[in-house]
Amino acid sequence: MIQFRNIRKTYERPDRARLEVLKDVDGRIEEGAFAAVVGPSGSGKSTLMNILGLLDQPDSGTYTLNGREVTDLDPTERARIRNQDIGFVFQQFHLLPRTSAVENVTLPLVYSDVPDPEDRAVAALARVGLSDRLHHHPHELSGGQQQRVAIARALVNNPRLILADEPTGNLDAEVTEEIMEIFLGLHRAGRTIMLITHDSDLAARCTERLRIEDGRLFEEATV
């Protein structure tokens, strides 16, 4: 499903020193995998996820998604792939304020052509157990509920790949477990998931673990 080689990403720091976040990393994630990405803060986990999610571009390297070389695609085509094939979940939820759950979940469908956007949004909210919160605004929902709305939004276009960047980082243990259950369910249903987490218990329940350290990517053996 995902295959990348020699991915390099360097940032220039304010003091003009170069910060090599990713140094020629290679890796692959098979279709149907539930991969955890772990590593210390600032090690480049989010950077890698943004590159794999076509939100950011590497300085060099090749990236094949679903058998297609996507490194040199134009911005419009990249936007289309993000819309159709990838669902994002972020630590800060990123829901639109003063906007109902259904409308938030409908957002990806604004940029695609489906005949029944609202129905699909309602169905996606049902899958995360929020059928009774359709018209609530974010400030009327708990953190866990807000993250479930965000997951429904990631699911609404039926993408094959879900990229989650520390989705439980702001949530307490009980709610973290609820969210993890949802991801496990999605995995059982055949979706490919990449989960960035600091929580080693969560990582242990994934099918594989990738560790980023000192700009390099290692595959950890299953415990």
Partner: peptide, 16 residues
């Protein structure tokens, strides 16, 4: 700004 970033993440093109 976060809304714009999010819209781009879920597939909005620059033109949109």
């Amino acid at each position: 700004t976060p809304e714009i970033g999010l819209r781009k993440a879920v597939g909005a093109t620059e033109g949109q």
